[in-house]
Design a protein around this nucleic acid. Structure first.
Length: 382
RNA sequence: GGCGGCGUGGCCGAGUGGCUUAGGCAGCGCCCUGCAAAGGCGCGUACCCCAGUUCGACUCUGGGCGCCGCCUCCA
């Protein structure tokens, strides 16, 4: 199959071995799952389904960031322990994923489960001379890593300008380079803290993914994904610290999900312009929610509107009607068309259109829909 | 600035080489009606620009222009 690779900036062949190693950045569990999160994980779900259809075994790791600035702040506001908040929101997230029939992850590790791994990983980066201790924090030393920018393709000057423009802190006096980022940092008084060789503290934002990908999968993984808002700095920093630590390539293929918008702006927790999966579930068949998502291409930003669910619901009804009829015949042509579309950079809108055509001709489309994770007959497969 | 996406008639919006001027709204004309509305019938207008591929491009390729989105809280 062919998939767009962010680092290479082109649609290129994706031809992994029998076992496919995938890592997807998961959520920070301090609020409910919205349609943008769902779009991301449904995309990787469909990729996994097609890879399995082709005979591969897929091992997808999706972390849970249960300790970072956001969740600590929210827990402080609510007056609850951050791990209690994380556990509750993670359970809601998993419930939403199950409802949407997203394939269970091969592993779904929590950041706090990996403190020992993170400390070890930071040690590897320090031993290879790519990090330094300053002002109580451990910083990644960008000056020692020439390839910084390999994923996002920014120049040094652009990255500095962006950091300043977006309220970053490039002028932190403890940094040797304005783009250096934290691997380990001191905790505030009311924040969780772990012992380390560099003093008590907690992990930086990016380090958990690098440590977990190495612990759970391999030095080099086949595919790494997440929302396009994570390309820089998150994935750029991940790649840098992982390759600095191991001396090997980190990721063969980078895949990013475009943002879902609402009211003209990116749907995000900070803006509050959200459509929650838990709300949609009250009204709609979860299969229709999935259809509302896959009607859009993963690389194309799209806007949520009130017509999406009625359209998706009607489509689901059509597919069910032709596929559950007593004399229904399952369309092999539709299945083949869906396979061809998915192999072309996960063209789910094309796949949906192909199924629509078959359904309009009165053919059963259960097998074709199942490849999109929509089960019209029988028990769902996760 | 980088990356991604898009650019269809007044507006919205399908359509991945060769009757399509899909469809919807608006508009115009007619029918129906005491008048009007609703309804019915009919009409009109397009494919951002420039090259290229081709027998032929709205549809493919390259370039340009324009618009939108993302870019250290963020899937």
């Amino acid at each position: 199959m062919r998939i767009h690779d962010t680092a290479r900036g082109a649609i290129v062949p994706f031809e992994p071995g029998p076992i496919v190693t995938m890592y997807t950045c998961g959520i920070t569990p301090y609020d409910a799952t919205h349609i943008g999160h769902a779009a991301t994980y449904v995309t990787y779900d469909i990729l996994q389904r097609r890879l399995r259809d082709l005979g591969h075994e897929t091992r997808c790791v999706r972390n849970v960031t249960d300790v970072d600035d956001d969740i600590l702040r929210k827990a402080r506001e609510l007056g609850v322990h951050y791990l209690d908040l994380a556990a509750a929101e993670t359970a809601r997230f998993d419930s939403d994923m199950e409802a949407l029939n997203v394939i269970e992850c091969w592993s779904e590790p929590r950041a706090t489960s990996a403190i020992a791994d993170i400390r070890g990983f930071i040690g590897m980066v320090l031993d290879r001379g790519h990090a330094y201790l300053s002002g109580g924090s451990v910083y990644f030393d960008v000056n020692t890593f020439e390839r910084f920018g390999q994923v996002s393709h920014y120049s040094h000057e652009e990255m500095v300008a962006l950091a300043r423009q977006h309220g970053g802190n490039p002028d932190d006096p403890n940094k040797r380079n304005q783009l250096d980022f934290v691997l380990w940092q001191p905790s505030a008084d009311d924040e969780p803290s772990w012992e380390s060789l560099w003093g008590p503290g907690r992990p930086g934002w990016h380090i958990e993914c690098s440590a977990l990908a190495l612990r759970e999968l391999d030095t080099t993984i086949d595919l790494h994904g997440g929302g396009s808002d994570l390309i820089f700095p998150h994935h750029e920093c991940e790649a840098a610290q992982s390759e600095a630590a191991t001396g090997q390539p980190f990721v063969r293929h980078w895949m990013h999900q475009a943002m879902v918008r609402m009211d003209g702006e990116k749907m995000s927790k900070s803006l509050g312009n959200l459509v929650f999966i838990s709300e949609l579930r009250k009204t709609w068949d979860t299969r229709a929610i999935r259809l509302g998502i896959v009607a859009h291409h993963y690389r194309n930003s799209w806007e949520w509107n009130d017509d999406i669910m009625p359209t998706a619901g009607a489509r689901l009804a059509d597919w069910l009607r032709v596929s559950t009829a007593a004399d229904a015949t399952d369309s092999v042509a539709a299945l083949d068309a869906v396979r061809a579309c998915l192999d072309d950079d996960l063209d789910t809108p094309g796949a949906v259109a192909a199924i629509d055509s078959a359904a309009a001709a009165g053919e059963g489309v259960a097998s074709a829909a199942a490849l999109l994770g929509v089960f019209l007959i029988g028990e769902p497969v996760r």
